[in-house]
Simulated assay, not measured.
Amino acid sequence: MPHADTLTVVHHDDTRTRFQNVRYRLHRDGIRIWTADGEHLVTDVLMTEAYRQRAQD
């Protein structure tokens, strides 16, 4: 399951929902997101943008 420091969900009406420090799973009906606040299911998804910063070696 992928991890993202910042996950932005772009909805069909071009609004955006941003999540911090999450795990997520894309599926046919949308995206399931796990945060410290609990689990979220977003079904109105046009696009996602996930960023993860890694420590430099």
Rank of each mutant, 00 (worst) to 15 (best):
I31G: 02
E39M: 08
I33K: 04
R28T: 09
H27G: 06
N21W: 08
E39K: 07
M47W: 13
V45A: 09
G38W: 01
G30C: 06
T48Q: 06
I31T: 04
V42T: 02
H40W: 08
Q20I: 03
A36Q: 13
E39G: 02
A50L: 05
D37E: 14
I33C: 03
G38L: 02
R23D: 15
I33P: 05
D29M: 00
R54D: 08
E39W: 03
L46H: 03
W34C: 01
D37V: 05
R54K: 06
L26A: 05
N21T: 12
G30K: 03
R32L: 00
R25Q: 11
Y51D: 10
D44C: 04
L41G: 03
Y51W: 04
V22I: 10
L46R: 11
H27C: 02
Y51P: 00
R28C: 00
N21K: 12
R23T: 15
R28G: 07
Q20V: 10
A36C: 02
R54T: 12
T43I: 05
I31P: 00
R25G: 04
R52D: 12
R28Y: 02
R54S: 08
T35F: 11
D29P: 03
I33L: 03
Q53A: 13
Y51E: 14
D29V: 00
R32D: 07
Y24T: 13
R52C: 12
G38Y: 02
R23K: 10
V42Y: 06
V22W: 13
R23A: 11
V22C: 13
Y24F: 15
T43W: 01
V22M: 11
A36S: 07
R25H: 05
A36M: 13
V42S: 01
I31S: 01
